[in-house]
Design a protein around this nucleic acid. Sequence first.
DNA 1: ATGTTCTATGAAAACTTGTTCACTGTCAAG
DNA 2: CTTGACAGTGAACAAGTTTTCATAGAACAT
Lengths: 220, 220
Amino acid sequence: MEELTKKQAAILEYMKGHVAEHSYWPSIRDIQAKFRFASTNAVFGHLQALERKGVLQRIPGAARAYKVAPVALVEDLSETIIRYEGPDENAIQLGSIPFMGSIAAGLPDYTESSGVVASMQAPITEGSRRRAPQSFALRVRGDSMIDADIHDGDTVIIEPGHPKHGDIVAALIDGQTTLKRLVKQGSKTFLKAENTNYPDLVPVTELVIQGIAKSVVKPI
Amino acid sequence: MEELTKKQAAILEYMKGHVAEHSYWPSIRDIQAKFRFASTNAVFGHLQALERKGVLQRIPGAARAYKVAPVALVEDLSETIIRYEGPDENAIQLGSIPFMGSIAAGLPDYTESSGVVASMQAPITEGSRRRAPQSFALRVRGDSMIDADIHDGDTVIIEPGHPKHGDIVAALIDGQTTLKRLVKQGSKTFLKAENTNYPDLVPVTELVIQGIAKSVVKPI
DNA sequence: ATGTTCTATGAAAACTTGTTCACTGTCAAG
DNA sequence: CTTGACAGTGAACAAGTTTTCATAGAACAT
């Protein structure tokens, strides 16, 4: 994707921050004041650039009306929901979830099948060209991961990505989403259930990784 | 709280839905068209009513600029974020967070003080007359609750309410937010740290409960 | 009966806001 | 050394929007 210039990124950041803080978009003049432009047209140009680069969508003529494009939306997700302050990426920041645009329900749900370890709840898949990393939550069903302190009823937050050895992943096996630890031995890949009662390693040939479990939400 | 009329509730619902779907607020004319009013003033009156009743905040003169007042905001929060499918209220539904209205940063932050057990991150306390239940997240700092499996770096999700004996609460002690278990013995109330190294019970006279810890988010 | 609230119309005023036009300048790539 | 993207000024226009004014019926409680 086309890169944003510093100014463009700053303006986009300010806009998103403004929404997070005030719940409505800034006007062009708001942005102008923030960045001390002498002309509204300076902002106007940047907005056009942001739209051209596909990270912002404007509604022509409408005041304070924008949409953040899917790509940016993902950034929003990872930055505002998964990411906390500082380098720690494993906490959920409830306090500043600003806005996520439209999130359609009605996605495939594997919940009711038998033997499902984790059921996909509501992956955030806004219509988009590029399939970009998108976080979603999985409700854990079953006890295959109890040795990893992940119990039935917990919710894990999954981020797509390339898992390393040792990561806990949500993977599609036989059309069902399961939660297991990824084990690599040489060139072979296994999925391991973290329950001493289960067979130790499950060899996998066709492995569809849906994402890496980053954090778990547990009732107190 | 003052009850909303059917029309008022419908308009508020439409507005929130509009934000969820489009990411920006509808104009008065948008609402007028939606409800087939012949005059914008019909909408205007309803908006005034909604503001008077404290569920909507308008920014005078600004276009498409509103905030959802805490009361309505809480409904959003509890229904979309805290509540998962079904009766279980202890999971976070990432998938359908529509919009939370304004969440100001810059609220009192007790993080850097010494001895703080939990630091308030971003409580949702928009200026409001009524203090209504509002969920927020606390970043746990310290080890006073490790015996309850709540460790430094975890994030707890707090919901205001009247705690029962045994609940883990976020309480203000000496101006600092701490996370401890509430213990009632007869007419007396104590706060108990869940760490065998700490003194067992802390007697409390002036107790300001900020909320009850409902779930905890832990890194994997 | 009477006041209050909710509901709504219709038009106009006042303000906010996005957009356009004309013009200047920098900087890197071809 | 021209071309194109980027960055900006300054002014003015056009459209979008909120807000106010005047008016009025229906429902409801006092």
